[in-house]
Design a protein around this nucleic acid. Structure first.
Lengths: 156, 156
DNA sequence: ATGCACAACGCGGAATTTGCGCGCAAGCGC
DNA sequence: GCGCTTGCGCGCAAATTCCGCGTTGTGCAT
């Protein structure tokens, strides 16, 4: 289905993961390929889902959500499709950036942005009330975002 | 410095946060603005840093890093610039996607991608050896990424 | 095994099309 | 009336498509 990436693909991904608006010609110069070849490969990787999205990263403070919280949640493990239901629900919650289903003392870890603690409180209240399978929420307040990003290494 | 966003700006950000390759004309149609106006606003928001980056999101599995870990770390709190040093170091570590400095039972929370547990072990070993101020690491293995993204709500 | 013909693939470059980036005059709000 | 921002038009840069070529790999006959 999706055959392995060659070195050119990896180099292209390394670049567009940092700046996806770069001109194909500039990319081609960096990696030793023509502009049309770069565009062909980009198109292919987009179609195959290797590049799943191309997104703008917006400053949290300017957007009015200066605060970040990390919420660890306990869920009913037995009920497996509780997780599926939670997934569809959480997809629509814009303040919940990321959710991971994990091993350990909590079952779910969520990265949540909010305007202030009051709004965060409202969000957690909604999580609890609209998802009875969530038993408890442990909150960590983020004092500083040391590093942010979605970069994935491609070089083996 | 950076005056507040109006409704047009917010609508543009909502769109480009999901797809930053969309044509300005298409964006303009959605929000009721001409293409050139959209481009002007995008340029301004890029220059002001409201849009801090535009990046391609790459599939983790295809990139050869199918596993994700959430690492909670304990650090020497007294030494404040220990955090600054850690920041500069961690910026260069491609496998460490995100790092948050938090309140609670741990001081730092990191999202880390790896090929397998063996590679993750190497990464944590490097963290410990190259950052003596890190005292201990608590690892949570991610069984499933329920939601991923960097979306920030802009509508108040 | 060796040599050859041929199909498949991906490249670079040219031609075409598309979208961007400016200047400008008009319109809206303060 | 004075900003500021919009919409429009034009020139140009970039993306897309098309085409010819070289390389690779496969099958077949020698």
């Amino acid at each position: 289905m999706t055959e392995p990436l060659d070195q050119f693909d990896r180099n292209i991904l390394d670049i567009v993961q940092r700046d996806c608006q770069m001109k194909a010609e500039a990319v081609g110069e960096m990696i030793g390929l023509s502009a049309s070849a770069v565009q062909r490969r980009l198109k292919r990787m987009r179609e195959e889902g290797i590049i799943s999205a191309e997104i703008a990263v917006v400053d949290r403070k300017v957007a009015g959500n200066p605060m970040t919280f990390i919420a660890g949640m306990e869920i009913e493990r037995e009920n497996y499709d509780a997780l599926a239901k939670f997934r569809t629900w959480v997809d629509k919650q814009d303040h919940i950036q990321q959710v991971y289903y994990v091993t350990g003392s909590v079952d779910l870890v969520a990265i949540i942005t909010a305007q202030d603690v009051g709004q965060y409180d409202e969000i957690t209240a909604q999580i609890m009330s609209q998802n009875p399978q969530i038993k408890r929420i442990h909150t960590n307040v983020v004092l500083k975002s040391v590093k942010l990003g979605m970069f994935v290494p491609t070089q083996s």
